[in-house]
């Protein structure tokens, strides 16, 4: 294929060269990709066959899908799933940052505590952890205040304190924080050590250096894998049934499917909602990434700050841009 088109491009050159006006841009025969079109057409045809077939297939029961997709129980369950995701990710991110900073700390006590925490929470399956959280009220039937191993001063029964929703949030959040800690640590390590030195030389303490200088720069590296974690968490909430918390999307749709003796349409309903929520979260990630890309590189799409945009357009010459790009690259 490509041989024949190359031959066509080359053959008119000696003859046509004389007749073409000398300064006109030469017409170049674009390289064709006929196989792409063939593959695309075949794929489209396959998809069409699948869709037409699926639409007629009784097992999918599209009537029930339509009936239950906006069912109040289902929308409420989608809300709970989103809430579980958001709350446990907030715990995961905040605790993850604290753990990562602890691991980088010069204080050996903080370092060891963070290490042990990670060892336990990364080393056991989240499903097992959730079952444990669900059994918390059984294991510790009361919270006692007082001297250990003596008659307590005050004692609360735990059954009233713990409810399945919050136990799920805590269980998912604590497990997530162990993974987030490693993501944050990767971000911290990606920041040039010179940044730490410069802040130190200015008289900034370790904590302030982390908060003001290192963490904001680490965010750029932290956000993409965190987006991954959020989406992963959205789906991990389906394990909440281990606690047992039964109002989230997967368990709720499964319960409905038991009522109507048909699991397939409600699997589709659940998938539609998971996909919809994921899409919304991806949009959020896009805007977060833009926010933390401030001052990075001299890429034309990033541009300087809004204040300087007009100035730089006039004054910024190419050699400056080259130097800035080079140094920006080195700094990273």
């Amino acid at each position: 294929m490509s041989d024949s088109s190359a031959g066509r491009a080359a053959s008119p050159a000696p003859a046509g060269g004389a007749s073409a006006p000398p300064n006109a841009p030469e017409k170049v025969v674009k390289l064709r990709h006929p196989w792409r079109i063939v593959v695309a057409v075949l794929l489209l045809a396959a998809v069409a066959v699948f869709v037409i077939d699926a639409a007629q297939r009784e097992a999918f029961d599209w009537g029930s899908v339509g009936k239950y997709v906006f069912d109040k129980r289902v929308t409420q369950a989608a809300g709970f799933t989103l809430l579980l995701t958001v709350l446990s990710m907030i715990i995961g991110v905040v605790l993850g940052i604290i753990l990562a900073v602890m691991r980088q700390s010069p204080n050996p006590v903080l370092k060891s505590v963070a290490w042990v925490y990670l060892w336990i929470f990364r080393g056991t399956p989240v499903y097992v952890q959730l079952v444990f959280w669900g059994l918390l009220a059984t294991i510790y039937s009361s919270i006692d205040l007082g001297v250990p191993f003596m008659e307590p001063w005050v004692s609360f029964p735990t059954k009233v304190l713990f409810n399945a929703f919050w136990l799920t949030v805590i269980g998912l959040g604590l497990n997530e924080s162990a993974y987030m800690a490693e993501i944050v640590r990767a971000g911290l390590l990606s920041v040039d050590p010179g940044q730490h030195e410069a802040a130190t030389a200015l008289g900034m303490g370790w904590g302030k250096t982390m908060r003001r200088v290192v963490l904001p720069q680490a965010m750029r590296v932290i956000i993409p894998p965190t987006g991954n974690e959020v989406i992963s968490m959205l789906k991990t909430t389906s394990l909440a049934t281990a606690v047992p918390f039964t109002l989230e999307l997967y368990t709720r749709t499964r319960d409905i499917s038991v009522e109507i003796f048909n699991p397939i349409p409600l699997l589709i309903v659940a998938s539609i909602w998971y996909l919809a929520i994921t899409s919304v979260l991806m949009v959020g990630q896009f805007f977060l990434e833009k926010r933390f890309a401030r001052g990075v590189g001299a890429r034309p799409d990033a541009g300087p700050g809004p204040v300087t945009a007009s100035m730089s357009a006039v004054e910024f010459d190419e050699s400056d841009a080259g130097i800035a790009a080079k140094h920006g690259g080195d700094a990273r």
């Binding site: 030389a201 003001r212 001052g295 990075v296 700094a331």
Partner: peptide, 29 residues
């Protein structure tokens, strides 16, 4: 840290804070 406040240092690789403008860099400390 207190002692370092009185000692300014300039580095070979500048080490400016890239997420801050020139003005913010100078105002930070």
């Amino acid at each position: 840290s207190k002692q370092r406040r009185d000692i300014g240092m300039v580095f070979q690789r500048f080490n400016l804070f890239p997420h801050m403008t020139a003005l913010e860099n100078v105002m930070e400390a």
